[in-house]
Design a protein around this nucleic acid. Sequence first.
DNA 1: ACCTGAACACCGTTCAAGT
DNA 2: ACCTGAACACCGTTCAAGT
Lengths: 224, 224
Amino acid sequence: MEPRKRLNKDVLASTALAVLDGDGLDAVTMRRVGQELGVTPMALYRHFRDKEQILDAVAELLLAEVHLPQPDERPWEEQLKDLLLAFSASLRPHASAAGLVATRILASEPGLTLAERTLELLDQAGFEVEQAAEIAGQALCSVVTLVVTEPGRDPQADAEAREDAIRMRKAELEALSRKRYPRIVAAAGALASCASEDVYYARGIELVVAGISGAHTGLERATT
Amino acid sequence: MEPRKRLNKDVLASTALAVLDGDGLDAVTMRRVGQELGVTPMALYRHFRDKEQILDAVAELLLAEVHLPQPDERPWEEQLKDLLLAFSASLRPHASAAGLVATRILASEPGLTLAERTLELLDQAGFEVEQAAEIAGQALCSVVTLVVTEPGRDPQADAEAREDAIRMRKAELEALSRKRYPRIVAAAGALASCASEDVYYARGIELVVAGISGAHTGLERATT
DNA sequence: ACCTGAACACCGTTCAAGT
DNA sequence: ACCTGAACACCGTTCAAGT
């Protein structure tokens, strides 16, 4: 509905991201994005070959928002934890868009920079390139997955509707057969939402780094 | 195009899965699924409230295909590794559909059974329910992510087209600035495809279980 | 009970045309 | 160079109707 902005890739991508945040992925249509800018849908084709390219640009936007921590002298585990935390911090406000990133990290400059920095830390740790590549991909994608599957997440709902949905979800799980699903019933609360989102991400990333640390220990055992 | 099958949920879901495997998620439309069964699109609405429910049923189908290993006396780490491997084995032939599962594990009987079994192993390991719930979710979703982001994966391409795409992808990464992305250039091969898919999944799952093992060690230190 | 046909309000994208 | 309008071949879904 904005009247006179000169169109360019960044404005279009930000507009698409705003629609995504507000109304979800299905709401992102050429017509809707054009409308938000007070422009015909066809105007978008001057800047993007097709809709896929707009989603690519949205993913790039998220990756560009990652505030990469400066390298320092702490152990690589600590630095990697901070890197993954910074990545999660950029994705968390855009849960509906986060999934776009998983398959697009190597497709833009900021994503490549993020991946390069991750590989650098794994290289410092002593991993050889092939294994470092696999681990870096898995670690970064794990962060995306944490955001996309955050329990109780409901990106389009306001706080009240979200709480209702969580309560209902929890009640459904508690109503399951205690015989067949004793542990799911017992864990219903934790499965329906997380007590603290910050703790959820901290523990999730801790787990990823601990896994890499474990592979690293195996590696030292193998080479010494 | 099949002429006379009595419609039911399973037939519809299998048909949708076949379309997904063959032509990807975008090809799964009410019209296409109906057409594959020689039936009007509207016939599907007798069995599913909307398209979302069909995708739910496809996810359930994949989860039902998981061949859960029998509990035995080996350490929980080994049993968990086998469980996650079995899960990945069911998802791998359906890469285009795998992503549907991530947010739907707790939404069907076979998914609940998979989650319950995972929680059982984590309980054996000594985790308390809340942490077990978080870890189980993350571990199962990590397997989905491994499938969805498998390097070089291109579900709609035949073997030849796939190799071409990988070669091209690798060349693109190698053409990047060696100054700015030295490690990405060095790892181009591993980033564009995996040398062995079996090794990729084995190592990926190893990493997940090693992380859980690490959290477990911390836990023992805390309680003893 | 189960399926159909016509219709509605949408999509992405092409193409020729405007300024 | 940048945007528009009309058109095409699709969508999901509703509703009244058929058997």
